[in-house]
Simulated scan of single mutants.
Amino acid sequence: MNPMKMRDMVEKYVIAYNSFDIEGMIALLHEEIEFRNFSNGSVDVETKGIEEFWGIAEQSKSLFSHRCQTIVGYSFEDDKLQIELDYEGILAKDLPNGIKAGEKIQMKGKSVFAFKNDKIAVIEDYS
């Protein structure tokens, strides 16, 4: 896939994510989407397929009253696009780890996107 098309698709995905627009996110995904979230070097969330992704997206949406990913860098390799990002979120409810509703979370991370049939087929988030 053309790097500019990959970049455009990922930017649309991030806009939909920031807007809590799950349908907009799903529209960009391959039906066999694979999603993995890596935290501190290990996978803490993994889904396969649109339905599982939708479920985790709905669950994540309910955790935040505000969230914003800001892309600060891009790199391309073969059929993959990696973005470096700054993340900010405000919790909508208390978490088991002691973080309370209304608290702001800020972190840096990266996401790697792979593509198939002009759709996003793999998303790997690292924080």
Rank of each mutant, 00 (worst) to 15 (best):
I15W: 08
A16K: 00
Y17H: 13
N18R: 02
N18D: 03
S19W: 07
F20W: 03
F20C: 03
I22Y: 08
I22T: 10
I22W: 02
E23G: 11
G24V: 07
M25A: 07
M25E: 12
I26W: 01
I26L: 08
A27W: 04
A27N: 13
A27E: 13
L29K: 01
L29D: 05
H30I: 06
E31R: 08
I33M: 01
E34D: 10
R36H: 03
R36C: 00
R36L: 05
R36V: 00
R36A: 05
R36Y: 00
N37P: 03
N37W: 06
F38R: 00
F38A: 05
F38Q: 10
S39A: 12
N40C: 12
N40Q: 13
G41M: 04
S42G: 07
V43E: 04
V43P: 09
V43H: 04
D44H: 04
V45S: 01
E46T: 03
T47F: 02
T47I: 04
T47C: 04
K48L: 06
K48Y: 08
K48M: 09
G49K: 03
G49E: 05
I50D: 11
E51F: 02
E52Y: 01
E52L: 03
E52C: 04
F53Q: 02
F53M: 11
F53T: 11
W54C: 13
G55S: 14
G55K: 15
I56R: 05
A57H: 02
E58I: 14
E58F: 15
S60L: 14
S60V: 15
K61A: 13
K61T: 14
S62E: 13
S62T: 14
F64W: 09
F64R: 09
S65Y: 04
S65C: 12
S65E: 13
R67E: 01
R67G: 06
C68L: 11
C68V: 15
Q69V: 15
T70L: 12
I71E: 06
I71N: 08
I71G: 06
E77K: 14
D78L: 14
D79F: 03
K80V: 07
K80W: 07
K80G: 13
K80F: 06
K80T: 14
I83M: 06
I83C: 05
I83R: 04
E84A: 15
L85Y: 15
D86L: 12
Y87K: 11
Y87L: 09
E88Q: 10
E88M: 10
G89P: 03
I90S: 05
A92S: 14
A92K: 09
D94V: 12
D94T: 09
L95R: 10
L95Q: 07
P96N: 09
N97A: 08
N97E: 08
N97R: 08
G98D: 06
I99G: 01
K100I: 04
K100L: 07
A101S: 10
A101I: 03
G102K: 09
E103K: 11
K104M: 11
K104I: 11
K104R: 14
I105E: 01
I105K: 04
I105Y: 00
Q106I: 10
Q106D: 10
Q106T: 14
K108C: 12
K108Y: 09
G109K: 01
G109E: 10
V112I: 15
V112P: 00
V112R: 05
F113K: 03
A114N: 05
A114V: 04
F115Y: 01
F115G: 08
F115D: 06
